[in-house]
């Protein structure tokens, strides 16, 4: 782009080739010098705050330029939000309830699914597994005989979160008309996934007791966006100096409406509370769509 602009500037000064000329190595040395001067002027103008600078630069340089400011008011999250809204509508039509599971890496999202899938009874479920690389988590869930689609963000620049279009594509690989529930296991990260709506019905955040009770204050957005927080690995509490009441107070501070359930996927403690939340939410969604 810059190349075109400089070519154009030379052309207007009458120094030779028209814009788009493709052999800059044939330029004379004097042109190279002006080339450098133009670059400096442009950089100086871009860093300045005075809008008249453009005209000053034009006076020294070969061309005059006018600067105008245009109002745009474009929300950076709108693009993803639109994709998420159309996916949400599609899931609603199909009667599919989607849950976006978010947490830092290793908080127990896959372990929660391993404990949950065998206990769902007649609920028809599928899983979307988001990871930067590998299909290790999808393989862990293979024995449960439910449809699992692995989404790797590696080919898309190693994104630290799932964006709505990738989730929408992955949903198309599932037999949606034959499903009630889809778990979307997001990429392990407490920051980025919070910013991206995936068309889910509910967001659930997991926080393991080994991560510390200050996390809701350090990463408030993900706790604000979620309907439910699962405090995981509570079987480890006897070995830790973890202040559970302080965590609950911190959660209430950042999101007074957040529901909280404590559980251990390993010991099974608290799983009933999580399953009850799940069936209540699912039942409510089913009644609403009737």
């Amino acid at each position: 782009m810059k190349f075109d602009r400089e070519e154009a500037a030379r052309f207007h000064r009458g120094h030779g080739k028209p814009p788009g000329h493709e052999h800059p190595e044939h330029q004379e040395p004097v042109q190279e010098a002006r080339h450098a001067e133009l670059r400096t002027t442009a950089a100086g103008a871009a860093g300045a705050t005075d809008t008249d600078t453009a005209d000053d630069a034009g006076a020294q340089g070969p061309r005059k330029a006018a600067r105008t400011e245009i109002e745009v008011r474009f929300d950076l999250l709108d693009e993803n939000r639109r994709d998420a809204a159309s996916l949400r509508e599609r899931l609603r039509e199909q009667g599919v309830f989607a849950i976006n599971l978010m947490s830092s890496p290793g908080a127990g999202k896959t372990a929660l699914l391993e404990a949950t899938l065998p206990r769902l009874g007649a609920i028809r479920v599928a899983v979307l597994e988001g990871d930067i690389e590998t299909s290790a988590d999808a393989e862990r869930l293979a024995p449960f005989g439910v449809p699992v689609v692995q989404i790797n963000t590696g080919p898309f620049g190693g994104d630290c979160h799932l964006p709505a279009p990738l989730v929408a594509d992955a949903m198309e690989k599932l037999p949606l008309s034959k499903l009630d529930l889809v778990f979307i296991e997001n990429v392990g990260n407490l920051v980025c996934p919070a910013e991206f709506d995936l068309g889910e019905a509910r967001k659930v955040v997991l926080l393991s007791v080994t991560e510390g009770e200050d996390k809701p204050l350090k990463y408030p957005l993900i706790f604000r966006e979620s309907s439910l927080a699962l405090i995981t690995k509570i079987d480890l509490l006897p070995h830790l100096d973890f202040d559970l009441p302080r965590l609950e107070e911190n959660l209430r501070r950042v999101n007074p409406e957040l529901r909280v359930v404590q559980l251990s996927a390993r010991s099974g403690d608290g799983l009933e509370d999580w399953l009850k939340w799940l069936s209540d939410e699912l039942g409510e969604a089913l009644r609403a769509s009737d």
């Binding site: 061309r63 330029a65 008011r73």
Partner: peptide, 17 residues
């Protein structure tokens, strides 16, 4: 908010150009 509010655009002046 996460908003692109405005853009300052520089275009070649038609008179000078």
């Amino acid at each position: 908010e996460l908003l692109l509010r405005s853009i300052e655009i520089e275009e070649p002046d038609p008179k000078g150009d």
